[in-house]
Amino acid sequence: MTVSDTASYPPGRIPRSLVLEHRIIRRLFAIAPLCALTACATTSPAQSELAELKAEVRAMRETQARLEKRLERVELHASVSQSRAAAPAAAAAKEASAPASPAAPASSGYSTPELAVVKLKPRNEPAPPLPTRVAVVEPAPDDMEMFISPSPEEDAAPAMAAVSDPKEDEAATAVLDAEFEQAVAALRTGNVEGGVTRLRAFAEQNPRHPRADNALYFSGLGQMGLKDHAAAAQSFERLIASYPAGDAVLDGMLRLAECRLRLNQKDDARALYTRILTQFPGTAAATQAEQRLASLSH
């Protein structure tokens, strides 16, 4: 019986003996090439006979491959047929067992309790009162310096600047910047007195200039270089009072504390260092103030 005979059987009804027969045939086909090669090696045939044997082996291999493919198709067809035949039976069994499923929990000794549906309504209660009273704390006098309103003359200055010519303003700004740089250069080149004089005049004549606070700071440094710590303290005090939001205020406070120490006013110096620590924590100036406070305590 050959593989083609399986077509006469209905799907899923191939006899087991036929399957075993097919497997034996596949094994014989697998052994046949080895036997042919062994026979060729032992009898030492001629070259033509060897070629014929090789051709026969190739033909047998091709035949074996075709048979294997056909057998795989037959087995696949049989498995598909079996699965299709088993699907209705499984569905029928599932339907038959479905009505008995609700009674399963009762057999285990447990039953589902009947729960009543309760709707909750939100309470119509007023919200708890929140404390709205806040203690009023008066600001420190030092902090009030930042909120002091400018004088009428200072208020009128921006209005006058608004109606001026932009080109003239740029030219005037360039001239003032050059004057400031020349005054600072005088300090650096050794003309300390001349540089201090020019810087103080610059700050007095141009109080709204962006570098007015820097002019006061550098003039104070020059006065410290001239050992005039009292005048330097006045320059730094003016810087702190007039430009509390300037970029030179922290350095000015440190320098003012140094002047207080030079003038034997340790309590005032200590108060300045404490003020820096309180108002500007985490800054480099606060770190220096902390170190100098520690040195004063020894």
Rank of each mutant, 00 (worst) to 15 (best):
M1H: 11
T2C: 03
V3S: 05
T6A: 14
G12P: 11
I14Y: 10
P15Y: 01
R16M: 03
L18K: 12
L20Y: 06
H22D: 08
I24G: 12
R26S: 06
R27I: 13
R27F: 11
F29A: 15
A32G: 08
C35P: 09
A36W: 02
A36V: 10
T38R: 04
T38K: 02
A39M: 10
A41F: 04
P45N: 02
A46Y: 03
S48E: 15
E52L: 09
L53G: 09
K54Q: 10
R61N: 07
L67W: 02
K69P: 01
R70Y: 03
R70H: 07
R73P: 01
H77V: 07
S81K: 04
S83M: 11
R84V: 14
R84K: 13
R84Y: 01
R84T: 03
A85L: 09
P88Y: 00
P88I: 06
A89T: 15
A93F: 07
E95I: 15
S107F: 09
S111M: 07
P113A: 01
L115I: 09
L115M: 09
P122Y: 00
P122L: 00
P126E: 06
P129D: 08
P129G: 07
L130S: 15
L130D: 09
T132H: 07
A135D: 07
E138D: 07
E138M: 02
P141C: 02
D142E: 13
D143W: 00
E145A: 13
S149E: 08
E153A: 14
D155A: 05
A157L: 09
P158A: 07
M160P: 02
S164W: 00
P166N: 01
F180E: 06
E181I: 01
Q182N: 13
Q182G: 12
L187S: 06
G190H: 03
E193C: 00
G194M: 03
V196W: 02
V196H: 05
V196R: 06
R200S: 12
F202C: 09
F202E: 10
N206P: 06
A215V: 07
Y217V: 05
F218A: 09
L221F: 11
L221G: 01
L226F: 03
S235E: 04
E237K: 13
S242G: 08
P244G: 01
L250Q: 15
D251K: 05
R255H: 07
E258S: 10
C259W: 00
L263P: 05
Q265M: 03
I276H: 04
I276N: 06
T283P: 08
A285G: 09
T287H: 03
R292F: 02
S295M: 11
